[in-house]
Protein backbone atom coordinates (compact mmCIF):
# COMPACT_ATOMS: atom_id res chain seq x y z
CA UNK A 1 0.00 0.00 0.00
CA UNK A 2 2.76 2.42 0.95
CA UNK A 3 4.88 1.03 -1.85
CA UNK A 4 2.02 1.53 -4.27
CA UNK A 5 1.65 5.17 -3.23
CA UNK A 6 5.39 5.65 -3.63
CA UNK A 7 5.42 4.07 -7.08
CA UNK A 8 2.44 6.16 -8.11
CA UNK A 9 4.18 9.30 -6.96
CA UNK A 10 7.42 8.50 -8.79
CA UNK A 11 5.53 7.74 -11.99
CA UNK A 12 3.54 10.95 -11.68
CA UNK A 13 6.67 13.01 -11.11
CA UNK A 14 8.54 11.49 -14.02
CA UNK A 15 5.63 11.73 -16.41
CA UNK A 16 5.41 15.44 -15.67
CA UNK A 17 9.13 15.89 -16.20
CA UNK A 18 9.14 15.88 -19.98
CA UNK A 19 12.81 16.61 -20.33
CA UNK A 20 13.92 13.71 -18.20
CA UNK A 21 11.53 11.48 -20.09
CA UNK A 22 13.12 12.59 -23.33
CA UNK A 23 16.56 11.88 -21.92
CA UNK A 24 15.42 8.44 -20.89
CA UNK A 25 13.62 7.43 -24.05
CA UNK A 26 14.93 9.47 -26.95
CA UNK A 27 18.57 10.21 -26.15
CA UNK A 28 19.66 6.54 -26.33
CA UNK A 29 17.99 6.21 -29.73
CA UNK A 30 19.76 9.28 -31.06
CA UNK A 31 23.15 8.12 -29.87
CA UNK A 32 22.59 4.59 -31.11
CA UNK A 33 21.60 5.89 -34.51
CA UNK A 34 24.68 8.06 -34.64
CA UNK A 35 26.91 5.16 -33.62
CA UNK A 36 25.20 3.02 -36.18
CA UNK A 37 26.12 5.36 -39.00
CA UNK A 38 29.61 5.87 -37.66
CA UNK A 39 30.50 2.25 -37.33
CA UNK A 40 28.62 0.34 -39.97
CA UNK A 41 30.16 0.26 -43.36
CA UNK A 42 28.51 2.59 -45.75
CA UNK A 43 25.46 0.63 -46.73
CA UNK A 44 27.06 -1.22 -49.63
CA UNK A 45 25.84 -4.80 -49.36
CA UNK A 46 28.50 -7.40 -48.80
CA UNK A 47 29.65 -9.18 -51.89
CA UNK A 48 30.80 -12.75 -51.60
CA UNK A 49 31.85 -15.52 -53.87
CA UNK A 50 30.30 -18.92 -53.33
CA UNK A 51 31.16 -22.40 -54.35
CA UNK A 52 28.99 -25.46 -54.17
CA UNK A 53 26.14 -24.00 -52.10
CA UNK A 54 22.56 -25.21 -52.32
CA UNK A 55 20.14 -22.88 -54.06
CA UNK A 56 18.11 -22.47 -50.84
CA UNK A 57 21.19 -21.24 -49.05
CA UNK A 58 21.91 -18.79 -51.86
CA UNK A 59 18.36 -17.52 -51.62
CA UNK A 60 18.65 -17.00 -47.89
CA UNK A 61 21.91 -15.11 -48.35
CA UNK A 62 20.37 -12.87 -50.97
CA UNK A 63 17.47 -12.14 -48.68
CA UNK A 64 19.99 -10.74 -46.20
CA UNK A 65 21.22 -8.31 -48.84
CA UNK A 66 24.36 -10.19 -49.67
CA UNK A 67 25.54 -10.03 -53.26
CA UNK A 68 26.30 -13.54 -54.32
CA UNK A 69 28.66 -14.41 -57.17
CA UNK A 70 28.93 -18.10 -58.07
CA UNK A 71 32.31 -19.58 -58.93
CA UNK A 72 33.46 -22.94 -60.18
CA UNK A 73 36.24 -24.53 -58.22
CA UNK A 74 38.88 -21.94 -57.49
CA UNK A 75 42.49 -22.83 -57.03
CA UNK A 76 43.34 -19.81 -54.93
CA UNK A 77 40.58 -18.33 -52.84
CA UNK A 78 42.67 -15.34 -51.76
CA UNK A 79 43.41 -14.31 -55.31
CA UNK A 80 39.80 -14.73 -56.29
CA UNK A 81 38.67 -12.50 -53.44
CA UNK A 82 41.21 -9.82 -54.18
CA UNK A 83 40.80 -9.91 -57.95
CA UNK A 84 37.01 -9.72 -57.75
CA UNK A 85 36.92 -7.26 -54.83
CA UNK A 86 34.88 -9.65 -52.75
CA UNK A 87 34.29 -9.35 -49.00
CA UNK A 88 34.45 -13.08 -48.59
CA UNK A 89 34.26 -16.48 -50.16
CA UNK A 90 31.98 -19.21 -48.90
CA UNK A 91 32.71 -22.82 -49.78
CA UNK A 92 30.69 -25.89 -48.96
CA UNK A 93 33.01 -28.74 -48.06
CA UNK A 94 30.67 -31.65 -47.57
CA UNK A 95 28.92 -31.09 -44.25
CA UNK A 96 30.64 -27.91 -43.18
CA UNK A 97 30.85 -24.46 -44.65
CA UNK A 98 34.05 -22.55 -44.78
CA UNK A 99 34.21 -18.80 -45.08
CA UNK A 100 37.24 -16.81 -46.04
CA UNK A 101 36.98 -13.09 -45.35
CA UNK A 102 39.06 -10.32 -46.72
CA UNK A 103 38.87 -8.50 -43.39
CA UNK A 104 40.43 -5.10 -44.03
CA UNK A 105 37.35 -3.72 -42.35
CA UNK A 106 36.71 -5.95 -39.36
CA UNK A 107 33.28 -4.52 -38.70
CA UNK A 108 32.31 -5.50 -42.23
CA UNK A 109 33.68 -8.97 -41.79
CA UNK A 110 31.75 -9.37 -38.63
CA UNK A 111 28.58 -8.19 -40.20
CA UNK A 112 29.12 -10.69 -42.95
CA UNK A 113 29.79 -13.50 -40.51
CA UNK A 114 26.74 -12.60 -38.49
CA UNK A 115 24.61 -12.57 -41.61
CA UNK A 116 25.90 -15.93 -42.73
CA UNK A 117 25.29 -17.27 -39.25
CA UNK A 118 21.77 -15.94 -39.55
CA UNK A 119 21.32 -17.56 -42.96
CA UNK A 120 22.52 -20.85 -41.56
CA UNK A 121 20.30 -20.61 -38.49
CA UNK A 122 17.21 -20.37 -40.59
CA UNK A 123 18.25 -23.42 -42.61
CA UNK A 124 18.17 -27.16 -41.86
CA UNK A 125 19.34 -28.12 -38.41
CA UNK A 126 22.33 -30.29 -39.33
CA UNK A 127 23.89 -27.22 -40.87
CA UNK A 128 23.18 -25.17 -37.77
CA UNK A 129 25.02 -27.70 -35.67
CA UNK A 130 28.10 -27.93 -37.76
CA UNK A 131 28.23 -24.15 -38.25
CA UNK A 132 31.01 -22.72 -40.36
CA UNK A 133 34.60 -21.89 -39.89
CA UNK A 134 36.22 -18.64 -40.86
CA UNK A 135 39.60 -17.98 -42.41
CA UNK A 136 41.05 -14.52 -42.56
CA UNK A 137 43.14 -13.08 -45.33
CA UNK A 138 44.17 -10.11 -43.25
CA UNK A 139 44.48 -10.27 -39.51
CA UNK A 140 42.40 -12.66 -37.49
CA UNK A 141 39.19 -12.69 -35.57
CA UNK A 142 40.95 -10.72 -32.84
CA UNK A 143 41.64 -7.73 -35.00
CA UNK A 144 38.08 -6.58 -34.82
CA UNK A 145 37.42 -3.58 -32.69
CA UNK A 146 33.78 -2.91 -33.14
CA UNK A 147 32.57 -6.42 -33.72
CA UNK A 148 30.75 -6.56 -30.46
CA UNK A 149 29.96 -2.90 -30.26
CA UNK A 150 26.27 -2.93 -30.93
CA UNK A 151 25.06 -5.35 -28.25
CA UNK A 152 27.35 -3.63 -25.80
CA UNK A 153 25.95 -0.25 -26.74
CA UNK A 154 22.43 -1.40 -26.06
CA UNK A 155 23.38 -2.65 -22.61
CA UNK A 156 25.51 0.35 -21.89
CA UNK A 157 22.87 2.94 -22.70
CA UNK A 158 20.32 1.17 -20.60
CA UNK A 159 22.80 1.13 -17.75
CA UNK A 160 23.92 4.72 -18.14
CA UNK A 161 20.57 6.45 -18.41
CA UNK A 162 18.87 4.42 -15.74
CA UNK A 163 21.81 5.01 -13.40
CA UNK A 164 21.73 8.73 -13.96
CA UNK A 165 18.01 9.27 -13.70
CA UNK A 166 17.30 7.08 -10.71
CA UNK A 167 20.32 8.48 -8.91
CA UNK A 168 19.26 12.04 -9.50
CA UNK A 169 15.68 11.14 -8.59
CA UNK A 170 16.58 9.99 -5.11
CA UNK A 171 19.17 12.72 -4.78
CA UNK A 172 16.56 15.37 -5.41
CA UNK A 173 14.46 13.76 -2.73
CA UNK A 174 17.39 14.04 -0.32
CA UNK A 175 18.18 17.63 -1.23
CA UNK A 176 14.65 18.95 -0.94
CA UNK A 177 14.28 17.30 2.45
CA UNK A 178 11.36 15.17 1.34
CA UNK A 179 13.31 11.99 2.03
CA UNK A 180 13.77 13.06 5.62
CA UNK A 181 10.12 14.06 5.74
CA UNK A 182 9.14 10.70 4.29
CA UNK A 183 11.20 8.94 6.94
CA UNK A 184 9.31 10.80 9.64
CA UNK A 185 6.28 8.71 8.64
CA UNK A 186 6.05 5.05 9.60
CA UNK A 187 7.26 3.88 6.19
CA UNK A 188 9.98 1.25 6.46
CA UNK A 189 13.35 1.73 4.87
CA UNK A 190 13.02 -1.29 2.63
CA UNK A 191 9.64 -0.04 1.44
CA UNK A 192 11.31 3.11 0.16
CA UNK A 193 13.97 1.14 -1.67
CA UNK A 194 11.44 -1.26 -3.17
CA UNK A 195 9.17 1.63 -4.15
CA UNK A 196 12.05 3.30 -5.93
CA UNK A 197 13.08 0.11 -7.67
CA UNK A 198 9.57 -0.51 -8.95
CA UNK A 199 8.86 3.11 -9.87
CA UNK A 200 12.04 3.65 -11.84
CA UNK A 201 12.09 0.01 -12.89
CA UNK A 202 8.88 0.55 -14.86
CA UNK A 203 10.53 3.30 -16.85
CA UNK A 204 13.70 1.25 -17.25
CA UNK A 205 11.69 -1.59 -18.75
CA UNK A 206 9.92 0.72 -21.17
CA UNK A 207 13.25 2.24 -22.12
CA UNK A 208 14.81 -1.16 -22.67
CA UNK A 209 11.96 -2.24 -24.91
CA UNK A 210 12.18 0.94 -26.96
CA UNK A 211 15.96 0.74 -27.33
CA UNK A 212 16.03 -2.95 -28.24
CA UNK A 213 13.13 -2.80 -30.65
CA UNK A 214 14.57 0.28 -32.31
CA UNK A 215 18.06 -1.18 -32.55
CA UNK A 216 16.85 -4.43 -34.04
CA UNK A 217 14.10 -3.21 -36.33
CA UNK A 218 15.17 0.24 -37.40
CA UNK A 219 18.94 0.01 -37.21
CA UNK A 220 18.98 -3.64 -38.31
CA UNK A 221 21.29 -4.55 -35.52
CA UNK A 222 22.28 -8.16 -35.82
CA UNK A 223 20.18 -10.30 -33.56
CA UNK A 224 20.70 -14.00 -33.86
CA UNK A 225 19.19 -14.93 -30.50
CA UNK A 226 15.74 -14.20 -29.14
CA UNK A 227 14.62 -10.65 -28.49
CA UNK A 228 13.04 -11.81 -25.23
CA UNK A 229 16.40 -12.97 -23.97
CA UNK A 230 17.85 -9.60 -24.86
CA UNK A 231 15.07 -7.91 -22.92
CA UNK A 232 15.53 -10.11 -19.86
CA UNK A 233 19.25 -9.38 -19.83
CA UNK A 234 18.69 -5.67 -20.23
CA UNK A 235 16.14 -5.57 -17.45
CA UNK A 236 18.71 -7.14 -15.15
CA UNK A 237 21.29 -4.59 -16.28
CA UNK A 238 18.75 -1.85 -15.55
CA UNK A 239 18.12 -3.27 -12.09
CA UNK A 240 21.82 -3.13 -11.27
CA UNK A 241 22.06 0.41 -12.65
CA UNK A 242 19.01 1.45 -10.67
CA UNK A 243 20.22 0.09 -7.36
CA UNK A 244 23.74 1.41 -7.93
CA UNK A 245 22.42 4.83 -8.95
CA UNK A 246 20.31 5.31 -5.86
CA UNK A 247 23.10 3.94 -3.69
CA UNK A 248 25.72 6.33 -5.04
CA UNK A 249 23.32 9.23 -4.78
CA UNK A 250 23.75 8.99 -1.00
CA UNK A 251 27.37 9.98 -1.48
CA UNK A 252 26.52 13.00 -3.58
CA UNK A 253 25.45 16.33 -2.16
CA UNK A 254 24.22 17.82 -5.40
CA UNK A 255 23.28 16.95 -8.94
CA UNK A 256 26.68 18.16 -10.00
CA UNK A 257 28.36 15.70 -7.67
CA UNK A 258 26.17 12.95 -9.08
CA UNK A 259 27.48 13.82 -12.52
CA UNK A 260 30.99 13.48 -11.12
CA UNK A 261 30.35 9.79 -10.65
CA UNK A 262 30.17 9.34 -14.41
CA UNK A 263 33.92 9.43 -15.03
CA UNK A 264 34.44 7.43 -11.87
CA UNK A 265 31.83 4.74 -12.27
CA UNK A 266 30.55 4.73 -15.81
CA UNK A 267 33.61 5.42 -17.96
CA UNK A 268 35.78 2.62 -16.50
CA UNK A 269 32.92 0.23 -17.12
CA UNK A 270 33.04 1.07 -20.81
CA UNK A 271 36.62 -0.18 -20.98
CA UNK A 272 35.64 -3.49 -19.49
CA UNK A 273 32.63 -4.19 -21.62
CA UNK A 274 34.73 -6.09 -24.09
CA UNK A 275 35.20 -3.24 -26.53
CA UNK A 276 38.84 -3.65 -25.62
CA UNK A 277 39.59 -7.39 -25.47
CA UNK A 278 39.86 -8.26 -21.80
CA UNK A 279 42.03 -11.31 -22.41
CA UNK A 280 44.84 -9.07 -23.59
CA UNK A 281 44.91 -6.96 -20.44
CA UNK A 282 47.42 -7.37 -17.63
CA UNK A 283 46.22 -9.78 -15.00
CA UNK A 284 45.48 -7.23 -12.31
CA UNK A 285 43.28 -5.35 -14.74
CA UNK A 286 41.43 -8.52 -15.61
CA UNK A 287 40.60 -8.97 -11.96
CA UNK A 288 39.29 -5.43 -12.02
CA UNK A 289 36.90 -6.35 -14.80
CA UNK A 290 35.32 -8.92 -12.51
CA UNK A 291 33.81 -6.17 -10.36
CA UNK A 292 32.33 -4.29 -13.30
CA UNK A 293 28.64 -5.14 -13.58
CA UNK A 294 28.52 -4.08 -17.20
CA UNK A 295 31.14 -6.63 -18.26
CA UNK A 296 28.72 -9.41 -17.33
CA UNK A 297 25.77 -7.76 -19.00
CA UNK A 298 27.77 -7.07 -22.15
CA UNK A 299 29.06 -10.60 -22.22
CA UNK A 300 25.54 -12.01 -22.00
CA UNK A 301 24.25 -9.63 -24.66
CA UNK A 302 27.11 -10.52 -27.00
CA UNK A 303 26.35 -14.19 -26.67
CA UNK A 304 22.66 -13.74 -27.21
CA UNK A 305 22.75 -11.17 -29.98
CA UNK A 306 25.76 -12.44 -31.94
CA UNK A 307 26.07 -16.08 -31.17
CA UNK A 308 22.40 -16.73 -30.69
CA UNK A 309 22.78 -18.59 -27.43
CA UNK A 310 19.87 -19.03 -25.04
CA UNK A 311 19.55 -17.84 -21.48
CA UNK A 312 20.93 -21.05 -20.03
CA UNK A 313 24.34 -20.45 -21.64
CA UNK A 314 24.60 -16.99 -20.11
CA UNK A 315 23.10 -18.01 -16.79
CA UNK A 316 26.31 -17.30 -14.88
CA UNK A 317 26.41 -13.75 -16.19
CA UNK A 318 22.77 -13.21 -15.32
CA UNK A 319 23.22 -14.63 -11.84
CA UNK A 320 26.17 -12.34 -11.24
CA UNK A 321 24.00 -9.38 -12.29
CA UNK A 322 21.30 -10.49 -9.87
CA UNK A 323 24.00 -10.79 -7.23
CA UNK A 324 25.18 -7.24 -7.84
CA UNK A 325 21.63 -5.93 -7.64
CA UNK A 326 20.95 -7.80 -4.41
CA UNK A 327 24.06 -6.42 -2.75
CA UNK A 328 23.31 -2.87 -3.90
CA UNK A 329 19.71 -3.10 -2.72
CA UNK A 330 20.79 -4.33 0.70
CA UNK A 331 23.35 -1.52 0.95
CA UNK A 332 20.64 0.96 0.01
CA UNK A 333 18.45 -0.15 2.86
CA UNK A 334 21.40 0.22 5.23
CA UNK A 335 22.39 3.60 3.77
CA UNK A 336 18.99 5.04 4.65
CA UNK A 337 19.93 4.58 8.31
CA UNK A 338 21.69 7.89 7.94
CA UNK A 339 18.22 9.48 8.12
CA UNK A 340 16.56 7.15 10.55
CA UNK A 341 18.03 4.36 12.57
CA UNK A 342 14.99 2.15 12.51
Amino acid sequence: MRIRALVRRIVLQLVRDKRTLALLFIAPLLILTLMHFLFTSNGVPSKIGIEGLSSEMVERLEKLEIDVVSFQETSDIEDTIIDNELDGYLVSEGETLSLTVENTDPSRSNLLQAKIQQAISSGPSELVESGFKTNYIYGSEHTSFFDVLSPILVGFFVFFFVFLISGIGLLRERMTGTLERLLSTPIRRWEIVVGYLIGYGLFAIIQTIIVVVYAVNVLDMVLVGSIWHVLVTNVLIALVALSLGILLSSFAASEFQMIQFIPLVIVPQVFFTGIIPIAGMPEWLQIFSKVMPISYGANALKSIMYKGTGLSEVLTDLLVLIGFATVFIALNIVALKKYREI
Partner: peptide, 26 residues
Protein backbone atom coordinates in the same frame (compact mmCIF):
# COMPACT_ATOMS: atom_id res chain seq x y z
CA UNK B 1 5.94 16.72 12.12
CA UNK B 2 6.52 19.93 10.28
CA UNK B 3 10.11 20.58 9.31
CA UNK B 4 11.67 24.01 9.33
CA UNK B 5 12.18 23.94 5.59
CA UNK B 6 9.24 22.87 3.50
CA UNK B 7 9.69 19.32 2.32
CA UNK B 8 7.10 18.99 -0.41
CA UNK B 9 7.01 17.40 -3.83
CA UNK B 10 7.19 20.43 -6.09
CA UNK B 11 5.93 18.75 -9.23
CA UNK B 12 2.85 17.36 -7.55
CA UNK B 13 -0.25 19.31 -6.63
CA UNK B 14 -1.05 20.14 -3.03
CA UNK B 15 -3.77 17.54 -3.10
CA UNK B 16 -1.42 14.86 -4.43
CA UNK B 17 1.09 15.70 -1.71
CA UNK B 18 -1.56 15.24 0.94
CA UNK B 19 -2.81 11.96 -0.55
CA UNK B 20 0.73 10.66 -0.74
CA UNK B 21 1.50 11.37 2.89
CA UNK B 22 -1.91 10.09 3.96
CA UNK B 23 -1.10 6.79 2.23
CA UNK B 24 2.02 6.49 4.36
CA UNK B 25 -0.27 6.17 7.38
CA UNK B 26 -2.32 3.46 5.70
Amino acid sequence: YMAQSDALYQDLTGYENLTFFASMFL
